[in-house]
Amino acid sequence: MKICVLMKQVPDNDSAIILSNDSSSIKLNDITWCTNESDTYALEEALLMKEAHGGEVVACSFGRESSQQVIKDALAKGADRGLYISEEESDGFDILSTAKIFTQALKDENFDLIFSGLQSNDSGNAQLGLLLAEMLNMSHAALVMGTEVLNDTRIKVKQELEGGWFQWTELDLPASITIQSGLNKPRYASLRGIMMMKKKPIDIFDSSQIDSTGSKNKIFLDKMYIPQKVKETTFIEGTPDEIASKLGDLMINDIKVF
């Protein structure tokens, strides 16, 4: 199996997200970057499949130069090579155009499988892997919670539905699937893996050569802003003892928990 894993660099959960002065972007300087969480599960699933069935795992990332760190981390965990799609301009609003760039970068690789995390923690479109399925003529499944290789031409996936329901779906290869977090235990890089990483290649695809603006249907950013609160929140302040006493009083006398 030749598997591509799409991995995105996103702000870590503790980074403060602050708007730029013109409200058209966020300030990048104070952000700590990490690999998007569900993408780490996608990588683990690809590595497990390669270990069981053989093949190759290619870690692919897109965006600002620092995104290559995501690829390096994946190589250290066991991916065989990297593919970095350079793109400084992308704002993530027009995911259809982004998918066209990926299509150009991936089309000659003839991957059997493309794995990606369900959704990115920044723009949260939850679409890229599925757009690629159509553009690269692959089968697809979203919200995958388990994978099983049936034979050389077909896999079986467990898809998550709403309200605790699941569904088995069989997919002819090639297939692109989006992986839900929690389906495996992502590994840590070993010391040996980190040493090996330095010898593994990272190919660079320059997206500036690609004209992805062909569609007459387009999306533009009007503005960004901090969400208005829908509720008036009463903040309870004081020392821990004072807070516990006020909250206890609230729960017993106002909310009447007993």
């Binding site: 997200i17 999306i219 950013l221 009007d222 969400p227």
Partner: peptide, 17 residues
């Protein structure tokens, strides 16, 4: 919403959507 609900974006459309 983006950044897991920390920021809202208003988007404009040209053509169909």
């Amino acid at each position: 919403q983006i950044y897991q609900g920390k920021i809202n974006t208003d988007l404009k459309v040209e053509g169909s959507v």
